[in-house]
């Protein structure tokens, strides 16, 4: 079953097409990475799919609901961890988790239980009372993803989730993301190609707002005659190896 199907999804800013007639399918439960250089249209695509911005033309159907016709229905099924950490700084870890759960309609008891579950899964038990602004960058990122997961989304958008993290924190997050595979459909954007190679079921390469290639990491490497996804990405973008 397809979780996301886009048809000629387009976003224009004046004459500039940030996303240009994107046609994409993502199967339920898979981790799909959107790759591309800066300005390729990855974040704009995620913003449209998460109903943050309206497309100029075209549409996307998320688990049966159109992002243009039924955005409120779509919003109940998805969540996002934006590029920035996006936490409420003066709220504790527990308060952050319970707030987001409540905003998605969970009652106080369910929100509390959800916060406990997230604390267990993400290792927050010792820092539940700590204010978010006092957390390390790595822990803020973890909290950001936990905030997206506490609402039990069917589709999770991770926009450069490991940006600015040290290698240990990044590998910890990889471990967490791998644990979600199969349970949640994940759309990931990243500039770290080894991350995409390690985590993705399928990869879409975007250039100038268009989808220039799509396949499994192995398929893309075979298509370009390369041994690493990073090299395949460079070839697909017309760069020099």
């Amino acid at each position: 079953m397809q979780a996301i199907v886009t048809s000629n999804l387009t976003k224009k800013y004046g004459e500039l097409a940030a996303v240009d007639n994107l046609n994409l399918s993502v199967a339920k439960g898979e981790l799909f990475s959107l790759l591309g250089v800066n300005g390729a249209g990855k974040t704009t695509t995620i913003k449209m799919l998460s109903c943050l911005i309206a497309p100029t033309s075209g549409d996307a159907v998320i688990l049966g609901d159109s992002i243009t016709a039924r955005p409120q229905a779509v919003k109940k099924k998805i969540n996002i961890s934006p590029q920035e950490t996006a936490v409420a700084e003066n709220l504790s870890v527990r308060e952050n988790l319970e707030l987001i759960a409540g905003l998605y309609g969970q009652n106080a008891a369910a929100a509390k239980a959800g916060a406990g579950r997230m604390a267990e899964q993400f290792g927050f038990n010792d820092i539940l009372k700590k204010k978010a602004k006092k957390l390390s960058g790595g822990m803020q990122r973890r909290l950001s993803i936990a905030l997206a997961l506490i609402t039990s989304p069917e589709i999770l958008f991770l926009d450069e989730p490991t940006l600015g993290l040290d290698v240990l924190a990044r590998r910890e997050l990889w471990h967490l993301i791998k644990g979600l595979k199969g349970k949640v459909t994940i759309i990931l954007t990243t500039h770290y190609l080894e991350e995409a190679e390690a985590l993705s079921d399928h990869v879409g390469v975007m250039a100038k707002g268009k989808l220039s290639a799509v396949g499994t990491p192995v398929e893309l490497m075979a298509q370009t005659g390369t041994a690493k996804l990073e090299d395949a990405f460079i070839v697909l973008n017309g760069g020099l190896l």
């Binding site: 943050l52 996006a86 936490v87 409420a88």
Partner: peptide
């Protein structure tokens, strides 16, 4: 302005609010 700059507002805009 802080909610905007920290993208917290983006997170909230995705919510059913």
């Amino acid at each position: 302005a802080k909610d905007r700059s920290l993208a917290y507002l983006s997170r909230l805009f995705v919510s059913p609010l």
